[in-house]
């Protein structure tokens, strides 16, 4: 959704061509319609949802679906617990991935540790689709008692997102001038101080991009969360499909839950974007 709207803005600036508008318009309808539909039926009373033919415009407003999801029922727990799990796991894993990843990217990008080989090797960790690792991971996790624990999911997600952070941040490290840290060494800073007090603040815009990436990756991850956890520790992605299988045809409720589950991700990306813009303003070194 964000992508589509920013594409539109850019195009408005450059192309004043009605054909382009028609194509973009069609694409937007295509991309945004499902989102619109989710919002529509999340607030629609049960009877209206199953009306045929379906009404494309808002009909009667109802908060039943939201209420069902928010307060839960005998068969379904309130959504807040799952949102909380997802939030906790996403934030902690992202923080771990970002702090280890940026340190690693700095070492690779600034001091050429590992030559040309190590960065590629790190990225190669992500060549395998996660599903390929599920069985060995399951066995390992069972052995170590990590199944269905916060700790298990956190180290899993941190490990999975570190390569992305490293690669993204390496680009930022390489394009930021080493003279800044050299000036700091001359001013009496050691490597650590130069890294934390000079390099990190300069890398902030990159860090906020990496934070958005990792947070959203983890927030949306389903396969591993479903296989390696899901009972005591269930994330929002595990919760959503459950609504479907528990009792048939809870479309309005699923729509309401989906709506509530994207809100934190959107808020997070929005906050990070503010950081990003401020960070870029710093960028003018010369």
């Amino acid at each position: 959704m964000r992508r589509a709207s920013s594409t539109m803005r850019r195009l408005r600036r450059h192309v004043a061509n009605s054909w382009a508008w028609a194509v973009v318009g069609a694409f937007l309808v295509f991309a945004l319609f499902p989102v619109y539909w989710i919002v529509l039926i999340a607030f629609r009373p049960r009877d209206d949802i199953f009306q045929y033919p379906a009404a494309l415009m808002p009909t009667n407003l109802s908060l039943d679906n939201i209420r069902f999801i928010w307060f839960g029922t005998e068969t379904s727990e309130p959504i807040i617990g799952f949102l909380g799990n997802s939030m906790l796991i996403s934030v902690i894993s992202s923080l771990i991935a970002l702090s280890l990843g940026v340190a690693c990217a700095y070492a690779l990008g600034r001091f050429r540790i590992g030559g040309g080989f190590l960065p590629m090797w790190i990225l190669s960790q992500r060549f395998l689709p996660p599903i390929a690792l599920v069985v060995p991971l399951y066995l390992m996790y069972r052995q170590f008692g990590l199944l269905d624990t916060y700790f298990g999911l956190v180290i899993l997600y941190a490990t999975f997102t570190i390569p992305i952070v490293v690669w993204l941040m390496m680009g930022y490290v390489e394009s930021s001038p080493p003279e800044l840290e050299e000036a700091a060494y001359i001013d009496g800073a050691g490597y650590w101080t130069a890294f934390t007090r000079i390099a990190l603040p300069v890398l902030k815009p990159g860090l906020s991009v990496a934070a958005v990436f990792t947070f959203i990756f983890i927030w949306n991850e389903y396969v591993l969360a479903f296989q390696l956890a899901g009972d005591d520790v269930a994330t929002i992605t595990v919760y959503l499909p459950r609504l479907r299988s528990a009792v048939a045809e809870l479309y309005g409720e699923i729509a309401a839950a989906s709506l509530l589950s994207v809100i934190p991700a959107i808020v997070f990306a929005g906050v990070m974007q503010r950081f990003l813009v401020r960070g870029l303003a710093f960028g003018g070194l010369k």
């Binding site: 003279e179 800044l180 000036a183 603040p201 300069v202 902030k204 710093f282 960028g283 070194l285 010369k286």
Partner: peptide, 10 residues
């Protein structure tokens, strides 16, 4: 003093 000045931007 560096050619690029290397002032700490933040």
């Amino acid at each position: 003093v560096f050619q690029s000045y290397a002032l700490y931007p933040h």
